[in-house]
Design a protein around this nucleic acid. Structure first.
Lengths: 96, 96
DNA sequence: TTGACAGGCAAGCATTGGCTTGCCTATCAT
DNA sequence: ATGATAGGCAAGCCAATGCTTGCCTGTCAA
């Protein structure tokens, strides 16, 4: 859906963001094992791959392919929309 | 679900937050008409009531009953969790 | 070149969530 | 007391979502 809010709605996707925050630029399999180890979240590789697609289309992460590896990089700037929308009292539109 | 992230996942609920931000302490019917007028969102009263329940259990708004009126007050402090979780680079837990 | 490894595509299932419809309770004015 | 207004409860429908299973493509080492 390419929607930011729907992207962070699923607990699994938030866990992925946390995992990428601990260590940026991980591959799909690295994310899988790290979720299982540190977050106690055991999912299929395909499930996590789908979550990564949602996060990418929401602009929360970017990818870089290199050989047979695909690295995932966190980008939290879209989350600033939330701050600007509700947490800034006077609704000041900061110049982009 | 009392989940913050699921609360702001639905566009209708975000519109409600915006509407309460424009004018705090509105009743259910006021919210209904204001959504229809300014947000072009025409929903059943019950639908909006259900959304308000979700928002309240997420801590995003508080209510005060007065006679046959029930006023709704916005509270955006739960959203700060998002800032603390991903937008603070060094993960400093600010003293509550 | 063959096998192991990293990832992608697509169909299918089960559950959830958003919204509606229908009816009921409570408060206030006349 | 009666009607109008503000809100609540609950069942039900439909579409979307999360996850799985099964299979296929591409890259690299021996």
């Amino acid at each position: 859906m390419s929607d930011l809010f729907e992207a962070i709605a699923a607990p699994a996707r938030r866990a992925i963001l946390d995992v990428l925050r601990e260590r940026d630029g991980q591959t799909l399999f690295e994310i899988c094992t790290r979720l299982a180890m540190t977050k106690d979240l055991t999912l299929t590789r395909q499930a996590i791959s789908q979550h990564l697609d949602v996060l990418e289309s929401a602009g929360l992460l970017s990818t870089k392919r290199e050989g047979r590896y695909k690295y995932h990089y966190l980008d939290t700037t879209p989350l600033e929309e939330i701050v600007d929308r509700w947490l800034t009292p006077d609704r000041k539109k900061r110049g982009k």
